[in-house]
Design a protein around this nucleic acid. Structure first.
Lengths: 105, 105
DNA sequence: CGAACATTGACACGCGTCTGATAAGGTTGC
DNA sequence: GCAACCTTATCAGACGCGTGTCAATGTTCG
């Protein structure tokens, strides 16, 4: 389980290009050989697969994942967002229904 | 405190255009008069002001706020994201530092 | 009534994200 | 040593977001 970028790509359903992009974005960061070649282990392959799930099953964007990470790391931000949301539940339920209507169409 | 869209805009620092956009996005949804005119009350004005804070102080995108709302509403999604994050903390701390380096430059 | 405002709808621009392609060059392993 | 792979860098295109602006039309209120 020491895959090179192309093999990891084939096994996870991403393209090699995207694997490099995801590394740039900081979402899945592989190790490196002395030569500079990326090394994907089990951990990274699992991350790639589940990241794919998040997108396909939940329509989660990459920026959303990054934001969730920020959220768990920065308590000030978490509180601010939490507070904001508390004042808007009615409106957001409405939005959710609109969204469902669109998906149904 | 029954503001029309232009007045609410002036008092919150948004443009009237943006207020309509925010309604579309489902983030701040005013009431309506029989004529169709939007009505912004205290609640909405507060939402608008604090939304502005979120953007300016934390650089939060509108899509981020919507995502946070989804997150709190959909436990399945919350678990999936939570699980994903658990496997990536090292990588994301690295990303955070990269981000800080960029901001410092 | 008339000025000042609101409504929806559309066009458009700049910018960021995601993704592929291509080029010039280094690494691996039979 | 050579085929098949990798590296970085760059160009490019499609699409979405945040915004402004304009047009045609309806509302408010002194």
């Amino acid at each position: 389980m020491e895959l090179t970028v192309g093999t990891a790509a084939r096994q996870t359903g991403w393209s090699a290009r995207m694997l490099r992009y995801l590394e740039d974005a900081g979402l899945v960061v592989p190790g490196r050989r002395p030569s500079g070649y990326r090394v994907y282990g089990m951990r990274e392959v699992n991350q790639l697969r589940s990241l794919r799930e998040l997108r396909n099953r939940f329509g989660v964007e990459l920026s959303d994942v990054l934001f969730a990470a920020r959220l768990r790391r920065d308590p000030g931000l978490r509180d601010a967002v939490h507070t904001w949301l508390a004042g808007t539940d009615a409106a957001l339920e409405w939005e959710q229904r609109k969204h469902e209507r669109l998906l149904a169409a």
